[in-house]
Amino acid sequence: MIEQKGATILTRDELKIVHLVLNTDCNAWDRPNTPGSPGVCRFCYRERNRVFADPDTVRRVIDLIRHESAAQRIVFTGGDPLMPYDNHLEVALAHAVDRGFETNLHTNGLLLADRYSGLRQYVTLYSLAIDGPDATTADWFRGTGFFERFLSNVEMLVADQRRLAFNTFTTTESVRWLLQLGQQISNIAARTSVEYWLISQYRPIGRPNSRKSEIYGYDPATFVAAVDQVRGIVGNLEVFAQPTRAPDDPYPFRAWILADGTVTADLGSVAAPRNAVLGNMLSDGLEPLIRRAFALRDTQFPASNSNDHATPTEN
């Protein structure tokens, strides 16, 4: 920790990235399934409840993140932050940039073209979901027409020379096509800047489901081997892997802040039914709540490395 103008703040080593949730809704849940699909985004573990805030509250939340931490980036996530109602996304992005943050828009991209002109000047990085190298695979995960929209978004962003990142979930079947997807991402990286690729297995987090486990719960060693192969074809592109963890093997620490100021933390346990709710930063402060989360995590995983707090992973 360091002192700034008499206040204790979280260093970048402790909290490099903050995830700001403007809403937990997602339009992908309403898309038609492709033949053979178990249902759109069955890997998702978000609870479907709206987050209610007003523009002034969102600005106060961002101001407090700046005042009580040295975090360098805010990830705007959800659900999907591009839902077709006023969740104050443009206000939040503009204010975050004004306060010196990098901004990561984490989206499935289905509504990106609709809102692009109003937000492009405020977004540092566009993190797009893509789970397969063709419509057969990608639409199986996220609904009919998803892959076509993904390609359209990539062309739009590449033409505008935007910085990109990618987020991929895998199954027993789709992991076999990871090399082909890696080649596509490598080709995109040759045309515009690509910062990272996050590849994940299924995460039960306390809600085990036999159907999901059958689809997503394959051997983590197979997953790790597939990701290692991909690293060999994407050059210097940073690849993060999130294999399914054992109960005593914690996931990297992540802080999630709702637009109303509620602070939750991903403490890393697959046994937790949901993220721990720590309090509201507008009344309790951000720094004390995050330190409470660190203490809870250290209690759960006393042997875990404290440097895990800074692991740069997304959802």
Rank of each mutant, 00 (worst) to 15 (best):
R203G: 13
P208E: 09
N236G: 07
Q242L: 13
D249V: 05
Q201V: 08
A225L: 12
A246G: 08
P208I: 08
I233W: 03
A225S: 15
K212S: 14
G217N: 11
P247T: 02
E238D: 12
N236S: 11
E238C: 10
G232L: 04
A225P: 11
V230F: 00
N209R: 12
R231V: 00
V227F: 00
W197L: 09
A246C: 06
R203H: 12
Y218T: 12
R231L: 03
R211D: 14
V227S: 00
I215C: 07
Q229I: 05
I215Y: 09
P243A: 07
T244V: 08
P220L: 04
V224L: 11
N236I: 05
D249I: 01
F240D: 04
F240R: 09
I215R: 11
E214T: 15
K212V: 13
I215L: 14
D219M: 11
L237Y: 03
P220Q: 06
D249T: 07
Q229M: 08
G217Y: 06
V227Q: 00
P243S: 05
K212Q: 14
L198S: 13
Q229F: 01
T244K: 09
K212W: 11
G235M: 04
I215F: 08
R245I: 03
S200N: 14
S200H: 10
P243I: 02
A246T: 10
D249H: 03
D248R: 03
V224Q: 12
Y218V: 13
E214Q: 14
F240C: 04
V234W: 00
R203F: 11
Y202S: 09
V234N: 01
G232P: 04
S213E: 15
I199P: 00
I233T: 05
P204C: 06
A226Y: 05
R211L: 14
E238T: 14
F223P: 00
R207W: 06
P247M: 04
G232M: 03
A241C: 02
R245P: 02
R211M: 14
A241D: 03
Y218S: 12
P204G: 07
D249E: 10
V230D: 00
E214L: 11
L198R: 15
A221L: 13
F240Y: 13
W197M: 06
I199L: 04
V230N: 00
Y196C: 09
F223M: 05
V227W: 00
D248A: 02
Q201Y: 04
A226D: 05
P247F: 02
G232T: 06
L237I: 05
I199F: 02
P204E: 07
P204H: 07
P243Y: 03
P204R: 09
Y218F: 15
G232N: 07
D248F: 01
L237T: 01
E214D: 12
R211P: 09
E214P: 06
T222C: 09
P208Y: 08
T244L: 10
I205R: 13
Y196F: 15
S210D: 14
Y202N: 10
G232Q: 10
G206N: 04
L198P: 07
P247W: 05
G217R: 12
S200F: 08
V230S: 01
